[in-house]
C-alpha cells in the first residue's frame, strides 16, 4: 500500500513500554447498507494484528467486526529500552495486510 496505514508511538517509562497505535481501515461490519442502492456493504475488517518487540511477539490481537473504524490499540509491556524496534502488522478479511516499524522513545 502506498499510503502508510499505521501510526505507532512507543515510549518507555520506568521500565514499562507503552505502545499506542492507530491504523486507518474502514472496518465495515457487513451489516451496513448502502442507502442509495439498498445493497449491503460487504464486510471488510482487520482480523489479525501482531505486535513485535525486537522480533519477539508481545501481543496478538484477533479482531471482529465490532472494532471501530480506524482502530486504536494501546498496550504495555516490560523490558523495553530506548531505540528498540516495535513492529505492528495487520491482515484483514480480504487478504490485505500492512506492517510498520517504529523506535521506542
Amino acid at each position: 500500500m502506498a499510503k502508510k496505514s499505521i501510526r505507532i508511538r512507543a515510549k518507555v517509562k520506568k521500565g514499562v513500554t507503552e505502545v499506542k497505535t492507530l491504523i486507518s481501515h474502514p472496518m465495515e461490519t457487513g451489516l451496513r447498507k448502502n442507502k442509495k442502492t439498498g445493497k449491503k456493504i460487504p464486510a471488510h475488517f482487520i482480523q489479525e494484528v501482531t505486535c513485535e518487540h525486537n522480533g519477539k511477539k508481545v501481543l496478538g490481537a484477533d479482531w471482529g467486526v465490532a472494532i471501530s473504524k480506524n482502530p486504536y490499540l494501546s498496550f504495555k509491556f516490560s523490558g523495553g529500552n530506548k531505540g528498540d524496534t516495535i513492529k505492528i502488522s495487520w491482515a484483514d478479511n480480504k487478504g490485505k495486510s500492512d506492517s510498520a516499524e517504529a523506535k521506542v522513545r
Partner: peptide, 8 residues
C-alpha cells in the same frame, strides 16, 4: 512480558 493492559 506483556502487562495486563489493553486499550481500544
Amino acid at each position: 512480558n506483556t502487562e495486563g493492559f489493553v486499550s481500544t
